[in-house]
Simulated assay, not measured.
Amino acid sequence: MKIFISNLHGQSDSSTAMIAQNTVTDIAKGMWMNELPISYFPINSLSLEQMAERAAEIANNLSRDDVIILQLPTWNGIAFDEILIESIKKRQAKMIAFVHDFVPYMFAKNYYLLDRYLNAYNQTELLILPSQKMGDMMTEAGLKKKFVIQELWDHHVNIPVKVNQEFNKNKVVFAGSLTRFPFIWDLDGQLDVDVFSNDQGRDNSSIHIKGWQPDAILIHELANSGAMGLVWSENFTDRPEREYSKINASYKLSTYLAAGIPVILREENAKAEIVSRYGAGLIVNELDDLKNKLNEMSQEDINQMREHAKKLGFLIRHGEFTRKVLVDSIFKAIGDEKNENI
């Protein structure tokens, strides 16, 4: 028996979707798993026959009773994912679907694909999901398979992280596009905000554009910021991002924690419970309350929160959450016949 993991290639170097898959694969290869690369292609650029040929090339690497951790979606469209899963089934390999994003819940315009995604994922032995709530919603909608929960994303970076000893209550950091997250401008004049994106700034603004940075450099900059990291979403037309944050695992959240800095997020966020459990962040339900909440923190609160964030960051940088969920899912898929969730 061999264990394989799929890995996305061919998207932009700044693609969070590809970075997440590459990171998981890097950790998995350190656990003696074998990479199965999947090339990205624009949806509808290939015929069904061409998709089947690509899927067969991937599946032909597998033998009976091998285990394949399939990182999904492949971002090549549901048609390709269906064909790929069917091709793997023919090889009689055991499939674990590591669901990074669930497209029907992510985009309102794709909700009509719900049954197709569930039918495809029901062909696997087991799913890795970002939250219990997502699993419950999928089960209610027709998912018939067991699942394990991914607690946090890892950032497998081999760099020394030295957190700035100074802390500025009047400053936060935000990694994300202001085009996608325009509500950050609401903090203009209230707090200093360092934004890591390639957006256009404004004159005489407290919103400071720092540019997009690759993971290792970004983590260094965040660690040196002397601030907390903001994890925030709002709903937009066709993008129910606030609703999705209630069931999804934020990669941005783990980026901040990997840098050893505490985070700010809503209580409804899917990862608020684990952040609170580790004492590594501040729960704020409205952006208008953020400045007051920061000012209300005592120095002791700040010191404890920052210390807890540094400890959690150590685990994230060393890939411990990914290792745990991969091991749990493999044992569950090949050795546990009970119909229970971990």
Rank of each mutant, 00 (worst) to 15 (best):
D288C: 08
L287S: 10
H9G: 03
N44F: 13
Y251A: 12
I302D: 06
Q150W: 10
I27N: 08
L326P: 01
M1V: 01
V173W: 01
I78H: 08
Q21C: 14
I3L: 08
A259E: 13
K133Y: 08
K162A: 04
L222E: 04
F314Y: 13
S197R: 02
F196P: 10
L265M: 02
G201A: 09
P37W: 02
G281I: 03
E286W: 12
N164V: 00
K210I: 06
K291C: 15
M134K: 14
L290C: 15
E82M: 07
P37S: 03
F183S: 07
G30V: 07
F102T: 12
L143M: 11
I334S: 01
K29V: 14
S14W: 01
A333F: 04
E166L: 02
E125S: 09
L290Q: 15
L257N: 02
E49P: 13
Q132N: 11
N110A: 05
N76L: 05
A141Y: 10
I219R: 02
G135I: 10
V173L: 01
W232A: 06
Q190D: 15
I261E: 00
K210A: 09
K94C: 00
I96H: 07
Y251W: 11
V231D: 11
V325T: 07
M138K: 10
G260H: 05
K169W: 06
D154Y: 05
V172N: 00
S276A: 06
N224S: 13
I85G: 09
L152S: 01
E267R: 04
I247C: 07
E267D: 06
D194M: 11
I149Q: 12
L315M: 12
N61E: 09
N110K: 05
L290W: 14
T255C: 04
Y105P: 12
F196W: 14
Y256S: 11
L129Y: 12
F147M: 08
A280V: 02
S225W: 10
E125F: 01
R266N: 10
L84K: 05
F4Y: 15
D81V: 04
S63G: 13
L230G: 09
T74I: 03
Q50N: 14
I264K: 02
V325H: 05
D136H: 01
Q213T: 01
W32L: 02
I207L: 12
K29L: 14
L118R: 14
D186R: 09
I302Y: 07
Y111A: 13
N34P: 00
L282V: 08
E337M: 05
K332C: 03
F102H: 15
A20E: 14
K169P: 02
A108C: 05
I342C: 09
G226W: 03
D203C: 04
S254H: 06
I58H: 10
M95Q: 13
R323P: 01
L253E: 02
W212I: 00
P214I: 00
A56M: 06
N122L: 06
A120I: 05
M297T: 08
K145W: 03
N22E: 11
D199P: 08
I283C: 09
N60A: 12
F196Q: 11
K324S: 14
E241K: 08
M305W: 10
Q200H: 09
V327Y: 05
D336C: 06
H318L: 07
K144W: 00
L282K: 10
L178T: 00
W185E: 05
Q132C: 04
L129G: 13
K146W: 00
L84W: 04
S298N: 09
L294E: 15
N7R: 10
L294P: 14
M31K: 02
N44L: 12
R242Q: 15
